[in-house]
Design a protein around this nucleic acid. Sequence first.
DNA 1: CCCCTATTTAATTTTCGTCAAACATCCAGA
DNA 2: TCTGGATGTTTGACGAAAATTAAATAGGGG
Lengths: 140, 140
Amino acid sequence: MPTPSMEDHIEIIYSLIEQKGYARVSDIAEALSVLPSSVTKMVQKLDKDGYLIYERYRGLVLTPRGQKLGKRLLKRHDLLEQFLRLIGVDEDLIYKDVEGIEHHLSWNSINRIADLVQMLEENPDLLMKLEKLKNEQKES
Amino acid sequence: MPTPSMEDHIEIIYSLIEQKGYARVSDIAEALSVLPSSVTKMVQKLDKDGYLIYERYRGLVLTPRGQKLGKRLLKRHDLLEQFLRLIGVDEDLIYKDVEGIEHHLSWNSINRIADLVQMLEENPDLLMKLEKLKNEQKES
DNA sequence: CCCCTATTTAATTTTCGTCAAACATCCAGA
DNA sequence: TCTGGATGTTTGACGAAAATTAAATAGGGG
């Protein structure tokens, strides 16, 4: 079972490869706000665990296993981001909150939230109602 | 700023005192599924940081600061539990999920979720709709 | 070939917890 | 009364996960 930090790395690596075709140690470090030396160590572990193939100083590729997991993790991340945005959380707090909670929700919870998001998107009046509740809170 | 584990301890101590009038090291350990020796160490830190007053072998009391925080943390916990329950997460997954995410959401997100919960509670038809979406998922 | 940047390694830190042994408290029985 | 377990608590040594820092090393462009 991957640890939260392993998940973070796999997720970012997946999205970097999707966007730019490759993922260097320094890109990953940058994206995770972590030092390259930390990434090196993690990437070595991920290689050992079969999520990717790593050649030092050269680069890395996700194995099928790593790709499958990466895709799933990225979807989960995007869903949570969308959820917080829909209910009106401040944009500049969203990323950190998602980063914090994404590893700690069961897939059952994720699926329920996906349904909730779908419902909210299909009924703009619900979003209006939420918006109103939010504004009322300001005066208390 | 309290760490997640500090929050866990303060929250549990607050609710134990609320329920039974006092909180012994072994009660806290039991409630957190942790060994008493871990609790001792944490309680010493919480004393040093001004959240409670601790006399070894005797007991502890929350300071006003500790009480205020404890109350807030307990409310947050209950809210998240209620939220997951409302959207239909399996009962036996709820506690662990809440335990996992409660320390990682901004108060802004907590307030938005509180509004969402209020709205869901006031409109049972929304809950019906969610229930239906959940059941559809079973067939895919 | 040398230098600059990227990367790696090794030692250390922080947070959270375990385990075993020492210590304190309380209470029952001689 | 005092005493010796049983119970509860504390201490200190240790470990795992995740990150940092500083120093060593590798590779690519002038």
